[in-house]
Design a protein around this nucleic acid. Structure first.
Lengths: 221, 221
DNA sequence: AAACATACTGTCAAGCATGCACGTAATAAT
DNA sequence: ATTATTACGTGCATGCTTGACAGTATGTTT
């Protein structure tokens, strides 16, 4: 049936050959579809929660069929693991961009606000949900474990280097990251989500009062 | 078939009637089975994660059949919601017992350690997993919402009353509770789970240094 | 332009979880 | 004792999700 509709790339007859208005290289098609799938996964998990985010839902959100997911990723666990890595890359970039654009991050008291801004976004909460889900999925757990370690080290470097820390005690950074993650998650379950900001501000002010100079030793000493 | 095996309550013939060694009232049977199911739910969620904790797994862990769950709870969501309430009751009791037995809780700097001790237990993490799962289950979400509010108020009272707070600012208590929950969750995903204690200790020392007197105004001021 | 490679779609089978219906065992009531 | 009521076990049916496969469309190479 040559009269079939072509939803995405509209075709026209010009002479004998068909030229497509939207002509993309295979590389572009792959990159765009994968990006759309990653974004759709985050959006769908944010909207429906992890177990509500089936491949069918994600594919619908991305405007493709489930087969596209099957084609690009060997298994669902592999797909989700790549979603995690994609988000991590964006988070690292966001850390750096915030530090650069707003000239913050040189003092430890900047950490809570920066972490909150990055990790409280839908993608941050989505990744946390994936982490929780990985506890019932050994395959997924084994795939995201290395990614988790990588992000932990990347975040640590981004923070420690910025303040010029002499001791790289992970306790402070873990406190900030997981406390902020916990608050981001908790925001989903309280009546007034905006009120969680006050708790973040309190953590920030505690950091600032304990380390006026902004260095880490003063805080952990 | 009178020769059938009776696995739990052994029967003996004495004269014409059968007396059972383990004779419990219906009330006792119900209470014990429900308690076993609650404990089994927590244990199974801790071991396999929420979506790995099917009713079949939980029933196996409790030593009963799936039918027992069906009998006692109208639906799975109702079952899980009662698990949450059961855990909350235990948590409130644990808060009070710790404060009583160890004579702590009169200073805000006691909060992190007490919260950690209670919320980092398997049941605390299990409840958090249930909360996350409720995002994809509207029925479950609507059932645990009131329980969540109740525990929040109960915890607030337990803490505020104990330190004799004049201002009952929820920001501090939310910071502690959700930061601790986040750290308890994070502990499941780092290489050395024991190292999270250092972050809890850091939070504790920050509270102590900012509020040597132990009252809340000093901390949030 | 023809042949090939890659991207994507639609359908099907298998597995698993929940809820339901019915059967059996244990306790309570008469 | 008997009958009733409650507690619990077991098999069936439905719905949903993932993975597999065969087919179609689009892009690339020669």
């Amino acid at each position: 049936m040559p009269a079939a509709v072509e939803p995405v790339s509209v075709a026209r007859r010009s002479g004998k050959s068909e030229v497509h208005i939207l002509r993309r290289t295979q590389e572009q098609r792959t990159a765009e579809t994968r990006a759309a799938l990653f974004a759709a996964a985050v959006a769908t998990i944010s909207r429906l929660g992890y177990s509500g985010a089936s491949n069918a839902e994600i594919a619908d959100e991305a405007g493709v069929s489930r087969g596209a997911i099957t084609h690009h990723f060997a298994t669902r666990a592999a797909f989700i693991a790549e979603v995690v890595r994609w988000v991590f890359e964006q988070e690292v970039a966001a850390y750096q961009q915030i530090q650069r654009d707003r000239h913050v991050g040189t003092r430890v008291s900047d950490w809570p606000a920066i972490s909150w801004e990055v990790l409280s976004r839908p993608s941050g909460v989505a990744v946390l949900e994936i982490f929780v889900a990985s506890r019932s999925d050994p395959e997924l757990a084994s795939l995201i474990r290395p990614a988790q370690q990588a992000i932990e080290e990347a975040a640590a470097s981004a923070f420690f280097d910025r303040i010029g820390a002499t001791v790289r005690d992970p306790a402070a950074i873990r406190l900030v990251v997981w406390a902020v993650r916990g608050m981001a998650l908790g925001r989903e379950f309280i009546d007034d989500p905006g009120s969680m900001q006050a708790s973040v501000d309190l953590l920030t002010s505690m950091f600032a009062r304990l380390s006026p100079s902004g260095n880490l030793e003063e805080l952990i000493g």
